[in-house]
Design a protein around this nucleic acid. Structure first.
Length: 291
DNA sequence: TTATATCAGGGGTTCTGTAA
DNA sequence: TTACAGAACCCCTGATATAA
């Protein structure tokens, strides 16, 4: 088995997690409709906790597959990726797990890691959509799973965001000499904040970089040019940078549509989402049917 | 020695204005 | 009406530096 074989097998295993219930926490059935209304608005707050439980669950389930003497999956928290295969395999395959509560306003997970880390495609990303069994109460249930390479996400992200001089992506600085807690591994996005005149000037500078000047590159020489630009004009750090919902990755987009169109308890998730946002709750009967 | 601050990172969500 | 971008927010961990 090489690292690609391991990842292929693990991906299949991950997709089989669809329908799994995480039997460690449960939201009790609301006693009244009024409380159901309240619950519908706050159940998303469980997401960080459930996210961690799912990460743990994934690792346990992966180890139920037969890996012979090759090695086993280990959870890393903190650390990247969340799950790595420990054994004599080089490079070590890994899976980064992202969770999504599809009744939230967007997929909020971010993916900031530098594309430089994924040259050998040794890391995959799994996106797991979860909901309580009865939409607003019950145990968390994995309703769908999507897997692709970390490289493809990083590539889509860099292509989507990088538009000099308006938007710049920066690779992490070389921090290998620093202590562990001061080492950087994430990219960051910066948005132009200057006026129109400054922007025109900046555009001229970028034009002088030549034909490939607007194409993103993590290379040192290109990053140096970007840093000069950022030094010369005002930019702000973009805190929404790398949200996987916004990077325009075709696979993520397809998965999103598929999940939102899937029907659970007689209605699509798109419809449930709309209902919960509806102030008047005209369709309260839907909730009644759950209770 | 202990407490606090800082930096890098992890997991997320919501609300608002504008453009399509 | 919906999609998207922008701004802001919540919670947390762990390693290290510095002040008390």
């Amino acid at each position: 088995m090489n690292y690609q074989d391991i990842l292929t097998k693990a991906s299949k295993g991950l997709k089989n997690l669809k329908g799994n219930v995480i039997d460690v926490v449960e939201v009790k059935k609301p006693p009244t409709l009024d409380y159901a209304r309240h619950l519908a608005k706050i159940v998303s707050k469980l997401s960080p906790l459930v996210g961690n439980m799912i990460e743990y669950h994934v690792c346990v389930e992966l180890n139920k597959l037969d890996w012979g003497e090759v090695g086993s999956w280990k959870r890393q928290d903190p650390g990247f990726p969340d799950t790595v295969f420990e054994g004599n395999i080089n490079p070590a395959p890994g899976i980064e797990i992202k969770t999504w509560f599809p009744l939230a306003t967007e997929i909020t997970a971010r993916f900031k890691d530098s594309i430089n880390h994924f040259k050998q495609n040794q890391t995959y990303v799994a996106l797991l959509a979860w909901l309580p069994e009865f939409i607003i109460y019950g145990k968390p249930k994995i309703i769908d799973v999507w897997v692709d390479t970390a490289w493809s996400l990083a590539k889509a992200r860099d292509a989507h965001y990088h538009r000099p001089p308006d938007y710049l992506i920066f690779e992490p600085e070389n921090t290998s000499e620093r202590a562990a807690n001061l080492q950087q591994s994430n990219t960051n996005g910066y948005k132009f904040q200057g006026d129109a005149k400054a922007f025109q000037e900046a555009e001229k500078i970028v034009a002088a970089w030549g034909k490939e000047g607007k194409r993103y590159s993590p290379s040192r020489s290109y990053q140096k040019k970007l840093r000069q630009l950022r030094g010369k004009y005002p930019y702000r750090l973009d805190t929404n940078y790398a949200k996987i919902d916004r990077i325009g990755h075709q696979g993520v987009e397809n998965f999103k549509t598929h999940v939102l169109d899937s029907v659970i308890h007689q209605h699509s998730l798109r419809e449930w989402s709309k209902l919960i946002k509806d102030e008047e709750w005209k369709t309260m009967d839907w909730i009644k049917n759950l209770m």
